[in-house]
């Protein structure tokens, strides 16, 4: 299986070299993007959702068909307040999913599809996440004994801070709580949460964008890619989400495999057109990120530009 996928990758590399990057638009016909359309869509994402920016990545990995300063898109330090499994339970209960593609079991789940009849909330987004509730659930109550108290260390003991601080460094200010000084907040409600760097590259073989995830634990230490799978919808965790080399960054990263992206995007575009909405190529990444949200439901990256999916005409 591994050997096969390597072979496949080699073939894809060769095909990529022979055919070269797509230059003719097939956005509406196939749901794919040409290189220049990717740049246009990326520019639009960066201007509408400014937490995203273009980066150039490793100089040695630069792709000549993309501008040097626009090799890929990234948004860093995106919170992921809880694991995907817990959200799925709630979701099933709410009945808010539709299968976009039911030809085979590779189908994509859309969280933005039609809710079941008795579900009043129309075009609902992700279940709302109340920060204080999460905080209680994940930080305070979950001190599992099987980790031998390791978790407990993650919860800062406020008493230790100042004491430790004064061991080496003398900061007279810390003794005076009325002064404006560097001390740890007394507030116990500091949310410790996983965070993600989410990046979008251009996949030359599938001619679609591709999403990559780099995870960090609660103290901003690199998360092993396997643990990233906990934040991926379990329907995708071992099929469409794989761990591979990033095309522009060092190391192994989790990625949503792009083999079905074109087909899914084509379906979304068809639905829009049926509803009388003429899809514009510069909005491609907004549509794309909304669909990616079904794969990584708990990672709160910026796809905020709310735009009409065309529901008004039906």
């Amino acid at each position: 299986m591994m050997a096969l996928s390597q072979l496949q990758r080699a073939i894809q590399g060769a095909v990529g070299r022979i055919t070269g990057p797509r230059t003719v638009s097939a956005f509406k016909e196939k749901g794919v993007l040409s290189v220049s359309e990717f740049v246009i869509a990326g520019d639009n994402l960066v201007s509408k959702c400014p937490t995203w920016s273009w980066e150039s990545g490793e100089p040695s990995k630069r792709k000549s068909y993309l501008p040097a300063d626009k090799q890929f898109l990234i948004t860093r330090n995106v919170p992921c307040l809880r694991r995907a499994a817990s959200i799925e339970e709630e979701y099933e209960a709410a009945g808010g999913e539709v299968l976009l593609d039911n030809e085979d079991n590779d189908g994509w789940l859309a969280t933005h599809g039609k809710p079941k009849e008795n579900n009043g909330a129309e075009d609902d987004n992700l279940p709302s996440i109340d920060a204080s509730e999460i905080n209680k659930k994940n930080t305070i109550q979950s001190i599992p004994s099987y980790f031998g108290g390791e978790e407990e260390e993650d919860i800062p003991d406020m008493g230790e801070y100042e004491e430790a601080d004064n061991l080496i460094e003398t900061d007279p200010a810390t003794l005076q709580t009325t002064y404006l000084v560097a001390n740890e907040p007394d507030d116990d409600n500091i949310l410790r949460t996983r965070t993600y760097d989410v990046s979008i590259t251009y996949d030359n073989y599938y001619q679609t964008p591709r999403v990559w995830l780099t995870g960090y634990d609660e103290s901003r230490m690199l998360l092993q890619p396997e643990l990233v799978l906990e934040d991926v919808s379990q329907d995708h965790a071992h099929k469409t989400v794989t761990i591979e080399d990033h095309p522009h960054l060092p190391g192994k990263h989790a990625s949503v495999h792009p083999c079905r992206h074109g087909a899914v995007m084509k379906k979304i575009i068809d639905v829009l057109m049926l509803r009388g909405v003429e899809p514009e190529v510069d909005k491609y990444l907004f549509l794309f990120l909304k669909f990616v949200a079904s794969v990584i439901p708990t990672i709160e990256y910026d796809y905020t530009m709310d735009f009409d999916l065309g529901s008004s005409s039906t």
């Binding site: 330090n77 009325t178 404006l180 740890e184 907040p185 007394d186 780099t214 960090y216």
Partner: peptide, 26 residues
Amino acid sequence: LLEMLRVGGVSKICMSSVDEGFWHKL
């Protein structure tokens, strides 16, 4: 009053983050 003023401490929680790429490059 004391309680109100105490909340103003400058936070310094978890200030740094190192990308994997940094260590590869180093």
